[in-house]
Design a protein around this nucleic acid. Structure first.
Lengths: 251, 251
DNA sequence: GTTAACAGTTAACGGTGTTCACCATAAAGG
DNA sequence: CCTTTATGGTGAACACCGTTAACTGTTAAC
């Protein structure tokens, strides 16, 4: 179980004071170069193409040298995932802050996620296409990549909560959701604050539909029906926005 | 471009006459054993655990022996994917034929897909979690696994079309979708028959939301909000069914 | 009954992640 | 300033991987 305090410390990006000695700076720079090379191989040849030897070859090093920076190939990938999550989060936040209106921000963030996914399909596949990444069970402690994923999710969560606070949207009545679902929907006040179950349901719907849309498009599972899913995506987004009580721009 | 005739021949499962000589039967049986061993390794250790040598070890063979049955490791995986698609399709069809009512069938098939995915998460990940499987472009010819995937999709497509024919659902008005999207939605008559763009939009919505829901749940990306997504899934399904003009069972 | 195809073997090549022993250099300490 | 120590690098080696080649029995076919 996580307390609210845990969440707060977790969601604030660490901006350490950086008492960087000369060595530490060099070390961090090399680690960054390694991750950059790994990413280059990822976009060029897919996840299977990013191997330790290939990365080392990319920067003129020997494979065992990388073990001074990452404990294993899996660790390298996890670090890359963390970096990508943070890059995506920063991109979404920057895009969100383009507007002051919370409703517009919701559209900006959704469209931003799609744009990033389409611009970086390999990276997106690494972040979101991995089958069964983690159970997030009690015993499993939070790895840095998990924390980065939560920071990413928090962008959407916070925004939805803010939108609700500004102009509460009703959501379906509780008798339509059923008691079991209503119970579960009210079980996360540290995320959804004072939102009633119906509103939480709508927020989850927003996220679920957005995820499904983008995954299907970037994974190429929509080609059989649409040659350009852009218009479809916008229509779906308007539909969701309407359910959230936002004034949606016309087609 | 595919003609309607192509689709018909493609979507009918081949039930070859099987003029099986002794050798051919033995050969087919061994190939089946290989695929079974590969699947066992898949569910036990994920996609990365199913290697040629491991499969061979599983049945007391040498690795090169498998090359008498599959041209490469990739071919083995493709054959496994084909088999899994067909198994899933057969499961859905059997479940669908439990009821005569088309509306109920739509719910049965949707719930069946979720149940199969939850019962076989590794297999589901292999089928639907693969990033960017294929562009389905003109030059790329249809591999058996693609054909199996299309047979799978056809179960949903045919059902939606039948539901529409029995009781047409309106869908959003065209001026709400925009001319660009309306144009794309009317471009696949070989799939959606005489359905108007709004209805095709709803059919796509049905599939997109279903896919997103199941992917998120089986990939563990819903644990942060819900401990058991079953009730949420059913509520979402009711919502979609309502949009399709079906009488949905209460919670 | 001869012949040819088939199903399997072992050996080997290049590739992978990883560990080990070793070595140079750069920082730290008396 | 010199010594010590930690750091970042190396090549060799292990076990595994997918794949190919050469070879050997068995089995079906003419």
């Amino acid at each position: 179980m996580f307390t609210i305090k845990d969440r707060v410390t977790l969601l604030s990006r660490k901006v350490s004071v950086e008492t960087s000695t000369r060595r530490e700076r060099q070390r961090a720079e090399t680690a960054a170069e390694i991750k950059a090379a790994a990413r280059k191989l990822l976009v060029e040849g897919g996840a299977s193409a990013v191997g330790l030897r290939a990365v080392a070859r990319e920067l003129g090093l020997s494979a065992p040298a990388l073990y001074r920076y990452f404990a294993s190939h899996e660790d390298l990938m996890a670090a890359l995932v963390t970096e990508l999550y943070d890059e995506l989060t920063a991109y979404l936040v920057a895009r969100r802050d383009t507007s002051e209106d919370l409703g517009e921000q919701l559209f900006l963030v959704a469209g931003g996620l799609r744009d990033w996914a389409l611009a970086h399909p390999a990276e997106f596949g690494l972040l979101f296409g991995a089958p069964v990444p983690n159970p997030l069970a009690e015993d499993h402690d939070l790895t840095p990549s998990h924390q980065a994923a939560m920071r990413f999710g928090a962008v959407f969560e916070q925004l939805v909560v803010q939108v609700y606070r500004q102009r509460p949207f009703p959501g379906p009545p509780e008798e339509l959701l059923g008691p079991e679902l209503v119970g579960q929907l009210g079980r996360k006040p540290e995320i959804f604050g004072e939102m009633p179950p119906g509103a939480v349901y709508l927020a989850l719907t927003y996220w679920t539909r957005l995820y499904g849309l983008i995954c299907m498009e970037v994974f190429g599972q929509l080609h059989w029906a649409l040659d350009d899913a852009g218009a479809y995506f916008e229509a779906q987004l308007r539909e969701i926005g309407e359910a959230l009580g936002l004034d949606c721009p016309p087609a």
